[in-house]
Write a protein that binds this DNA or RNA. Structure first.
Lengths: 85, 85
DNA sequence: CCTCCTCTTTCATATCATGTACCAGAAGAA
DNA sequence: TTCTTCTGGTACATGATATGAAAGAGGAGG
């Protein structure tokens, strides 16, 4: 029962604001809030808030689940991961 | 440059004790320490210690990276994820 | 133009979860 | 005995989660 990315699901991704869509792949790559803040030139607190917003909109429990979601939806590839460094 | 699971790497998995290998997929599925404790009938503290030990042995920064590692190594499938529930 | 409304972006405080650095006892195997 | 594993613990630092709120952009309608 292979799952098509965003198939019958009402695009959950489109529920995310542009900035949130920018944050999502960074979370999914295993980066913490401090790193995300540095990359996007925002405070760690702001990064933190975006992650919370993303998680709530997608109905997930924690940022590990955000990573799993992003992989499942094909938003990032497992090869785009921090583990490659 | 597709990466073979545990190719030239000296089996990182074998560095893990049996109990740690039991914990790993649970972390990778996005479960928190409390859930892991309930599943394995151990305290949340003990689960926490195992996660720390796993992370150190594998040279990872946080539990999201543990999840990414497990996926990359084929220890769990993206379809075995908590998101399927 | 001006007000009203909504969304977005940004940062903050407070609280809870996770991570870090240890320690230690029990049980089994070598 | 010695070693490893499994288990739980304390104490503290850092990260994550819940919630609030200010500032700005943009549209709708007067």
């Amino acid at each position: 029962m292979a799952q098509l990315p965003s198939s019958h699901r009402p695009n959950l991704l489109e529920q995310l604001s542009p900035r949130e869509q920018e944050i999502l792949p960074l979370v999914a790559q295993g980066k913490d809030n401090r790193e995300i803040g540095k990359i996007l030139f925002i405070s760690e607190k702001t990064a933190k808030n975006y992650v919370t917003s993303i998680r709530k909109k997608l109905g997930l429990k924690n940022r590990t689940q955000i990573a799993l979601f992003a992989l499942k939806e094909g938003i990032i590839s497992i090869d785009d991961t921090i583990l490659d460094n």
